[in-house]
Design a protein around this nucleic acid. Structure first.
Length: 283
RNA sequence: UGCUGUACUGACU
């Protein structure tokens, strides 16, 4: 039997609020609502599903919140756009760890407050790769590639995510050539960077190069298939879109939307409609 | 022990 924890985890991952509430009910009925571990998971679930009020009330009912509880509520506030509240919780806790700091940096970074994010980053007692990457991402995402580049040079040990962020920024800027060069010159590759290159080539109209990269990548995950499919679909290539879609052994909403778009772009509106009705779990 | 922070794909916005 799956435990409450496992069930909650999958709800959180799938952002399934409805099922999450059911599990919450079962937890209450089993009189486990004061279990701190489960409460932490509930706060996280409600926060990620957009119910900040519910997250807060569960957090407040925790008798002795631990560092996880605090970090989760800070994260919940920032994911729901409440930076002021997140900051208040941050100040209220008395044993902050690196994650508490990084959560706050990330909150301001995602809100586009680069200078504030940097200020908090500079105040951190300890910085790890995740905190560096959060800030590098913020600069890269705001087209401040020079600053992002300065930071990756300054950080002690750039990791896979650091390079992914830079590669993504170059692709967003339309510079696939430079992105490819960095990809080729680093050993820090992952399925994420491989997929990014596929997307980068496809977005530049180079579906042939995208396909070469796709064929060369060591493992084909759901996202890499979706990237390739999106490339064909955007290029108006219904035949290859169909082949890609049929070749997938698992599909998600992005896959279904991709194939549907391919039909629509090719002018096959009936085909698109058929796909739409055959599609499981429309969102 | 298990719970929290950073990166990739579609459409909408």
């Amino acid at each position: 039997a799956e435990t409450f924890a496992e069930k909650l985890r999958s709800c959180t991952k799938a952002r399934n609020l409805w099922h999450g509430k059911e599990i919450h009910n079962s937890i209450v009925q089993s009189r486990l609502q004061s279990d701190r571990f489960l409460a932490n998971l509930l706060v996280d679930m409600y926060g990620k599903c957009g119910c900040l009020d519910a997250a807060i009330s569960i957090f407040q009912a925790i008798a002795n919140p631990n560092v996880f509880s605090w970090n989760i509520i800070i994260s919940a506030c920032s994911q729901n756009g409440k930076l002021d509240l997140a900051t208040q919780y941050f100040h209220k806790m008395n044993k902050r760890d690196g994650t508490s700091w990084t959560t706050l940096v990330s909150a301001f970074a995602h809100a586009g407050h680069l200078q504030l994010a940097m200020k908090i980053f500079n105040l951190m007692p300890m910085r790890d790769a995740v905190s560096w990457n959060s800030l590098i991402w913020a600069f890269a995402d705001n087209d401040e590639l020079d600053e992002a580049w300065r930071m990756i040079q300054a950080m002690p040990a750039p990791d896979i995510v650091s390079w992914t962020v830079i590669i993504q920024a170059l692709i967003d800027a339309g510079d696939v050539v430079q992105a490819r060069e960095i990809f080729d010159n680093t050993t820090q590759r992952s399925s994420v960077t491989w997929s990014l290159l596929v997307t980068g080539y496809a977005q530049g109209g180079q579906t042939d190069k995208a396909k070469v990269v796709f064929d060369r990548m060591p493992q084909h995950g759901l996202t890499s298939w979706n990237s390739m499919l999106a490339g064909y679909s955007q290029a108006g290539n219904l035949h290859e879109s169909r082949r890609a879609f049929d070749g997938m052994r698992e599909r998600d909403v992005a896959s279904w939307t991709g194939i549907m778009t391919a039909y629509a772009r090719a002018g096959h509106l009936e085909g698109a409609e058929k796909i739409f009705s055959a599609m499981p779990g429309k969102d």
